[in-house]
Amino acid sequence: MTPPATETERRRRPSTVGGLIYLILVGLTIAGLCLVAFGPWRRGIALVGAAFVVASGSRVLLDEREAGMLRVRSKWFDVTALAGVGIALIVLAANIPDQPGL
């Protein structure tokens, strides 16, 4: 006979809203990288950038207790880093010129 499962063993969902947003960010990043590998790479990079910008906005709106996996350092650092990377990816995807033959 097996012992009853504890609360941590039964939980299969994130415990905070930030954890859920983090999982969505990871999923969108994987989808964007698949686009980069197998489809229109500019859209894939822009999707990854947009996911980071949305995560940055979510970090601004969530309090410290609900930030979950989005909380790495202080709030201003997290927001600045996520927004900076997201905006940089979007700008780079929009400004890299086409290269014939690739």
Rank of each mutant, 00 (worst) to 15 (best):
residue 93 A to S: 06
residue 22 Y to E: 15
residue 81 A to Y: 12
residue 87 I to V: 15
residue 27 G to D: 07
residue 76 W to D: 12
residue 64 E to D: 13
residue 41 W to P: 01
residue 98 D to I: 07
residue 41 W to V: 00
residue 49 G to A: 06
residue 3 P to A: 12
residue 84 G to L: 04
residue 64 E to M: 04
residue 28 L to Q: 05
residue 98 D to Q: 10
residue 60 V to F: 10
residue 47 L to V: 10
residue 22 Y to Q: 09
residue 60 V to N: 00
residue 80 T to K: 04
residue 81 A to R: 14
residue 46 A to P: 05
residue 18 G to P: 12
residue 12 R to L: 15
residue 24 I to W: 07
residue 39 G to D: 14
residue 97 P to L: 05
residue 42 R to G: 00
residue 30 I to D: 05
residue 39 G to A: 11
residue 26 V to W: 09
residue 37 A to H: 11
residue 27 G to C: 10
residue 70 L to Y: 10
residue 62 L to H: 05
residue 86 G to I: 04
residue 65 R to V: 11
residue 56 S to T: 11
residue 35 L to R: 03
residue 34 C to V: 14
residue 94 A to E: 00
residue 57 G to K: 04
residue 87 I to L: 04
residue 33 L to M: 15
residue 74 S to Q: 10
residue 25 L to S: 07
residue 42 R to Q: 10
residue 72 V to G: 08
residue 9 E to A: 11
residue 55 A to G: 01
residue 86 G to F: 02
residue 73 R to E: 13
residue 80 T to G: 09
residue 39 G to K: 14
residue 15 S to V: 12
residue 97 P to K: 05
residue 11 R to K: 13
residue 17 V to A: 14
residue 99 Q to T: 11
residue 89 L to N: 01
residue 2 T to M: 15
residue 44 G to E: 01
residue 94 A to F: 00
residue 13 R to Y: 08
residue 51 A to D: 03
residue 65 R to N: 13
residue 50 A to T: 10
residue 23 L to R: 10
residue 32 G to M: 09
residue 32 G to A: 04
residue 64 E to V: 07
residue 77 F to C: 07
residue 8 T to I: 12
residue 25 L to E: 10
residue 93 A to Q: 07
residue 46 A to T: 04
residue 49 G to L: 00
residue 2 T to E: 12
residue 62 L to C: 01
residue 75 K to E: 14
residue 96 I to N: 01
residue 34 C to Q: 07
residue 88 A to I: 03
residue 79 V to M: 06
residue 57 G to H: 02
residue 41 W to N: 06
residue 50 A to E: 03
residue 21 I to Q: 05
residue 72 V to N: 13
residue 11 R to G: 01
residue 82 L to P: 02
residue 38 F to I: 08
residue 70 L to I: 12
residue 62 L to A: 05
residue 67 A to Q: 05
residue 85 V to A: 09
residue 47 L to W: 01
residue 84 G to C: 06
residue 7 E to H: 14
residue 97 P to G: 04
residue 21 I to W: 05
residue 17 V to H: 06
residue 92 L to H: 03
residue 59 R to H: 00
residue 93 A to V: 04
residue 65 R to A: 10
residue 80 T to Y: 07
residue 46 A to E: 14
residue 40 P to D: 14
residue 68 G to M: 08
residue 80 T to F: 08
residue 24 I to H: 02
residue 75 K to W: 08
residue 41 W to Y: 08
residue 40 P to H: 14
residue 18 G to W: 08
residue 83 A to Y: 04
residue 32 G to N: 02
residue 66 E to G: 07
residue 55 A to W: 03
residue 17 V to C: 14
residue 16 T to S: 13
residue 73 R to N: 13
residue 37 A to V: 10
residue 84 G to D: 06
residue 86 G to N: 03
residue 50 A to P: 02
residue 42 R to I: 02
residue 95 N to P: 00
residue 29 T to N: 11
residue 90 I to C: 07
residue 32 G to I: 05
residue 46 A to S: 13
residue 83 A to F: 11
residue 83 A to D: 08
